[in-house]
Design a binder for these strands. Sequence first.
RNA 1: GCGUCGGUGGUAGAGUGGUCAAUUACAACAGACUGUAAAUCUGUCGCCUCCGGGCUACGAAGGUUCGAAUCCUUCCCGACGCACCA
Length: 462
Amino acid sequence: MTTKEKIDEMLTRGVGEFIDPDGTFRKKLTESPEKIVIKFGIDPTRPDIHIGHAVVLHKLRQFQDLGCKVIFLVGDYTGQIGDPTGKSKIRPEIQLTEIQNNMKTYLDQVGKILKEDKAVFSWIKNSDWFTDVFDIMAGPGSVTNVEINENGTTKSYPLDPNSLPGKAILLENSRMQKIDLHNSEITSVSLSGVLRTLRHITHSRLIARDMFKERIQKGEELYMHEMLYPVLQGLDSHVLEKVYGSCDLEIGGTDQTFNMLMGRDVMKMYKQVEQAVMSVKILEGLDGKEKMSKSLDNYIGITDEPGDMYGKVMSIPDSSIVNYYELCTGTPLQEVEEIKNKLTDSSINPKNLKMKLGYEIVKIYHSADLAEKSQHDWEKTFSKGETPEDIKEIQSTEGELLSEVLVKHNILPSKSEWRRLVASNSIHNLSNNTNITDVETKVTGDLTIKIGKKNFIKIKAK
RNA sequence: GCGUCGGUGGUAGAGUGGUCAAUUACAACAGACUGUAAAUCUGUCGCCUCCGGGCUACGAAGGUUCGAAUCCUUCCCGACGCACCA
């Protein structure tokens, strides 16, 4: 593939919308990609990354490969406003370490996909510029000393951390613009800055957002802070431009399109070069209906075990196969098109296309060998009905009730559940290939059982 | 601040003194069928049980009653209307 073709695919594959009306971004990408700064907003609390998030991350990686710099913008401040527990005071030092820790677990996972060296990666939190000194409260053990140079000797004077200058020092010291990026000039956004921005944004512009429109139509409430979110996100882009020199592109899910476009509006007001906007299609979950998310428990985590990962892919409905190929693998678009055609051909079993998909996905997050092995195990277990090789093992003592052992090890939630499963012939004893029908079955020796179709447990007796 | 309505199981949402562990839908789980897919059909879906029943639950705490998710009081939370302020 030529570079141009590569760029074309980057800008279209899995992309809902790409907005770069006068071609500024495209031009810069071709001429000086190393000067490009890409903004990607993330939630401050989200330790588990799934392959739905990964769609965007892979896209970012491609940009990194061309030399572009990716900025993770942690929306900690904006997240806090939406937080119902409503802690109005912020402890900046505590919060900073907390976010740093979250970021670390985040990066541990993301590291599989993204480069993390400074030339092409950076992150910053938006409390950096939105936090007000008066919202700050010193945490326990805070020290805010002022150093004063008197006649050549530096003297340190203690300062009450909760006094105004004390708070100012705390805030200053938690600012990443200073501590990480060593910017001499710190950009921040005050209430007057927000209001000045708001002078240029009309009500009708804000309620143009689909989600708002829908809710208004349904007669639901819209809170002002929700309406301001897009504006604050826009201001983030504005600040990023100042902090990093430019903000050329914002990437996010299609649900973020409006907010990202707001960034263009805000930047325009401040006479900055408007960011391009790329919305990436949202991957549906394993149910094939809702979007992939942790709370719906329909996700494939990027740190999932190879076997799990493969099994989960196999459980998606046929209708999702093409989407998964497009969004989650590097399979050339031409081939994806062929797969699409094959799916309409009744002589080809879609299972095989899905198995290939499972293989490809496991390969990305683990390795070709493990992908091979997962596929092999899966076939063995489910197509041929054999017992898989690695299964969960739990300890028990002889004479113990089987039900109690399983509840104790959190395999089952309660003994009532066990009774139900036994009654419905769902507990299979693999050691002698019969169903367990006695609720009072005791452990008499090592035993391998299958609960339902996919839950294998080996019980070791002492 | 005044007033009105409301807070029920994972979610939505019935129930307004005993027949309520609580209709129904969705989700979930299991069985059949399959390609561990989807769809479909069937069953289950608070906990414990010697399968007789027992225990804990309808925002929280008290009360009335033989008996309360249902009535009363106080409190907490939410929506709405009005007033006040701008």
